[in-house]
Write a protein that binds this DNA or RNA. Structure first.
Lengths: 108, 108
DNA sequence: TGAAAGCGCAATAAAAAGGTTGCGCTTTCC
DNA sequence: GGAAAGCGCAACCTTTTTATTGCGCTTTCA
């Protein structure tokens, strides 16, 4: 069963995932990293990276912690699990519909 | 193991999912429906619906078939499975990193 | 203490996304 | 044949998103 995440919430999560650069960021956020550290591998400015990180943070896919002059980010697996949960629901629903249509056709 | 879907492809799929209206459309596309049929339940114009459907089709989450004067759309479960597959990969990767860090800490 | 590293904030600018309206074409059906 | 249903195309406008640049603040460290 899926969590009670509103359709708007879910859309926000998927929208956050809808950018190659952000996917690349998530790939690296298994372990905590600073902004400049992340920006080094990317073809855009540090400030652009910051904005992408903010998008991910707004949708709560990552979280940040300041320590000294550095801000570290790390992934929040629980939100990805929620997104997966919804995908499961929809595919399940499609399967059910398909099965129902099939049964109906066979009853003829 | 995940399919060999490029990062850009994956981003396109998630971006397509990143809109409440498109999620709502997907909810109804277990069975094939026409554009006007879909538009009836939504607060936007038929043409706006058409554009959303095109986005979903470009990312290959749905497919269309013309029959007479109507165009019918239906979901493509396989693409959602691919998307889920990637989410699994990333969460798995995060778990691995976490486990590795944990082991490292315990070895001290 | 003073330079450099690491950021945040704000103002733009450019591009993409979302939505509307108008028009015309084909298909359906009486 | 003629009206209505179902769409597609294209122009246009508005809002959001992405990225840049400039500046200044705090933290680190030699």
């Amino acid at each position: 069963m899926s969590k009670t995440m509103s359709k708007v919430d879910r859309a926000a999560v998927f929208a956050a995932l809808g950018e190659p650069i952000r996917l690349q960021l998530l790939d690296q956020l298994g372990e905590r990293r600073s902004i400049s550290q992340l920006a080094k591998d990317l073809p855009i400015s540090r400030q652009a990276v910051t904005q992408h990180l903010r998008v991910l943070e707004r949708s709560r896919l990552i979280e940040s912690h300041r320590s000294g002059r550095e801000t570290h980010f790390v992934a929040r697996p629980d939100r990805l699990v929620e997104a997966k949960s919804w995908l499961d629901d929809v595919t399940q629903q499609w399967d059910n519909t398909l099965a129902r249509l099939k049964r109906f056709a066979e009853e003829k």
